[in-house]
């Protein structure tokens, strides 16, 4: 029993890490008022970049860095369209997803069927021997640790610093933020860029740590789950940790439940059902105020216009 729980938790962390990275990125973008539906495209480009760079340099860390950079740069396309040119964010985001999927399969042809050395797992001293939580949390690859530390830092910034207040106010009421002297455009650009970097990292985790190989469309819809997660976790990075591991766990545990006859398709729907449930709950005005949902999400800001 204990062993099964440990293995399930381990699987949940593994499967949840790419979701966590991408969804924390999306939280930042959405907190600043920009809905980025291009996460799937950012992740797949990140996955390819990480794989290709790791393959040619032999150093996975350069690959990770490049993936973040490419994710960030690509998301700036969305930034340009939705922030400066005030385009419809939904369309621009979906275009980015399609662009990313197409670009990655076009560029990635020559990397198919090539093995690389994945990022090795590192056991953290005695913590790795702890029962139950040792294997899931302290015997993983460094990207898992990095994702947790980063999430915590980003949570601190978002809720306990001046910068965080600026970001949230830009997403909440850009006119007021502007009046207070916050540079709305710059803040949004930075958040979108950061979100893109994290999306790229999520993809990198897939292609060089989780299932180390390049295969077209290997993200298989995880970008959309990350978008759902940003809402599910009520735009809070810490809650996103729980949400990611929950969603990742659902994915992983289906193979343990299969012999019991629980249909996989039902479990596959669960993340989205849960997200819908959360959406219903937060649709109440009182709830929105309480959790501080970014009320100007998806609305372009035009300075000096009413």
């Amino acid at each position: 029993m204990m062993e099964g729980l440990e293995a399930s938790l381990d699987a949940a962390v593994r499967a949840g890490t790419p979701l966590l990275l991408a969804s924390v990125g999306e939280i930042y973008a959405e907190r600043s008022g920009i809905l980025n539906l291009g996460v799937e495209g950012l992740m797949i480009c990140g996955a390819l970049t990480a794989f290709a760079v790791t393959y040619s340099t032999g150093n996975p860390w350069i690959g990770v860095f490049a993936a973040a950079l490419v994710g960030g740069l690509l998301s700036l396309i969305h930034g340009l369209l939705s922030i400066s040119l005030r385009a419809n964010q939904v369309i621009s985001g979906i275009a980015l997803t399609m662009f990313g999927l197409g670009l990655s399969s076009f560029v990635g042809r020559k990397y198919i069927g090539i093995p690389i050395n994945p990022i090795p797992k590192i056991k953290i001293g005695f913590l790795g021997d702890l029962p139950l939580i040792g294997k899931p949390f302290f015997q993983q690859d460094p990207l898992v640790y990095f994702s947790l530390i980063l999430t915590f830092i980003l949570w601190l910034i978002l809720f306990h610093t001046r910068i965080g207040i600026n970001i949230r106010s830009v997403g909440e009421n850009p006119e007021a933020a502007d009046a207070m002297g916050v540079n709305v455009y710059l803040t949004r650009y930075i958040c979108v860029f950061l979100g893109g970097c994290l999306g790229g990292l999520g993809g990198a985790y897939l292609s060089i740590a989780y299932t180390p190989a390049w295969i077209e469309r290997m993200t298989a819809g995880r970008g959309w789950i990350a978008v759902a997660l940003a809402i599910f976790s009520l735009w809070d990075p810490l809650k996103a940790v729980i949400g990611s591991y929950l969603f990742g766990g659902i994915e992983a545990i289906q193979f343990r439940l299969q012999p019991l006859g629980i249909p996989a398709s039902l479990l596959g729907m669960l993340p989205f059902l849960l997200t819908i449930a959360v959406l219903v709950i937060v649709s109440k005005e009182v709830m929105r105020k309480k959790i501080g949902a970014p009320s100007c999400l998806g609305i372009p800001y035009a300075r000096g216009e009413k």
Binding site: Y210, I215, F255
Partner: peptide, 22 residues
């Protein structure tokens, strides 16, 4: 036997394999 219900999802394939090994 573990079923993926997909021709094409490496992450799922990994979890299925890990489950079987466990």
């Amino acid at each position: 036997v573990r079923w993926l219900f997909s021709w094409y999802d490496p992450a799922k394939a990994r979890e299925a394999a890990e489950t079987l090994i466990a």
